[in-house]
């Protein structure tokens, strides 16, 4: 097969995974939040409401694509693309198993983080392009927040990367084979517990999930930067958010929870063959926890959010990085 065709097919596979994730995650969010609120969630369309999201997709596709007359025409049109493309780019370095992967990059983890660092640009563009106060406030909040939480996120990733000695996602997963002391799986979450907690907090903030969803804040900013959008342009922004959740959870599973490895059976051929399913299961468990947090905690204020990152999270993650590097050298793990 020609390399160009191969690259095209791999990209299409990543798009397919993204779209399926979007449809499944929207239903999952509704059901999980309903459960937490002692409600039922969607029940009418299809058995257990499973077709509700499909109906919603058709609704979004057929809605009028509305543009406010005062909006900045080109920025308003371009913004949903710039929100969506980075969240799609972040899929490309992910590996579902040793053989199921979209690409084999030596800089995989860095690629995911670089793609994530582009997300605020589209949000700022949407906020400015809409020419509305709510949108601009939401855009500025999102940009300030994502810059602040990108730093602890990158520092928390360093621990597993140092342990594995590689930025390649497959190499990081394969470094987590085996057991410690005969029973404990060699997952990096144990020695890197502090790093994982930092990763989880920063990941929740990077995906703008409650308690860090000031950029959307339905009750004060009426969905902020996406306020003026309708139809499928709104759909793309929505989809990007869900796909970012998947990427953060998948990155966490890769770095801290042994990726596609089944504990105590990480050399068993059957367990390895089931790798992609194991990886998806772990990732969806991570997303479920993120939704649980989202449904449980109240929203913090924007100044509290920024102060927490710059004054607490960044110093702690810097100290933790130095400490884990020193311990790693001393113990020679």
């Amino acid at each position: 097969m020609s390399p160009l065709l191969q690259a095209l097919l791999r990209t299409l596979a990543a798009v397919a995974l993204l779209l399926v994730n979007g449809v499944v995650l929207i239903l999952m969010l509704r059901k999980v939040l309903a459960r937490l609120h002692l409600r039922l969630g969607p029940t009418r369309v299809g058995p257990w409401g499973v077709l509700q999201t499909v109906a919603d997709v058709f609704k979004l596709l057929t809605k009028e694509d509305f543009r406010p007359s005062g909006a900045d025409k080109w920025l308003f049109r371009l913004a949903p693309v710039l929100v969506f493309v980075p969240s799609f780019m972040a899929y490309l370095p992910l590996a579902l198993s040793d053989t199921w992967r979209f690409s084999d990059l030596d800089t995989g983890v860095l690629f995911v983080l670089a793609a994530g660092s582009l997300v605020p640009i589209g949000i700022l563009m949407a906020g400015w392009g809409s020419n509305a106060k709510w949108s601009l406030l939401g855009g500025l909040r999102a940009a300030g927040q994502q810059i602040a939480y990108e730093i602890p996120l990158m520092l928390s990733v360093l621990g597993p990367v140092m342990f594995a000695g590689s930025l390649n996602v497959a190499a990081i997963v394969n470094a987590q084979r085996g057991v410690w002391l005969g029973v404990i799986p060699r997952w990096f979450v144990l020695p890197q517990l502090v790093g994982f907690v930092i990763f989880a907090i920063a990941g929740q903030a990077e995906t703008s999930q409650t308690p860090f969803d000031m950029s959307e804040a339905e009750s004060e900013l009426i969905t902020g930067f996406a306020n003026e959008y309708s139809g499928m342009r709104f759909g793309f922004m929505f989809l990007a958010e869900f796909s970012n959740m998947f990427v953060v959870s998948a990155l966490g599973v890769t770095l801290f929870f042994g990726g596609w490895l089944v504990p105590w059976a990480d050399r068993n051929p059957l367990a390895l063959a089931l790798g992609p399913a194991v990886f998806m299961l772990k990732t969806y468990l991570g997303i479920a926890v993120m939704m649980w947090v989202r449904g449980t905690l109240p929203r913090v204020r924007v100044d509290q959010l920024l102060a927490f990152s710059w004054k607490t999270l960044i110093p702690v993650s810097l100290a933790w990085t130095v400490l884990s590097a020193l311990v790693m050298r001393a113990v020679n793990l």
Partner: peptide, 26 residues
């Protein structure tokens, strides 16, 4: 130069220009 490209994206596109836009809009 893959590493350099990613650092360029992360630092210049992801941080410097976002800060620039942030400052201009603010």
């Amino acid at each position: 130069a893959g590493f350099l490209a990613l650092v360029q994206v992360m630092v210049y596109a992801g941080a410097v220009s976002v800060l620039m836009l942030f400052t201009v809009m603010l």
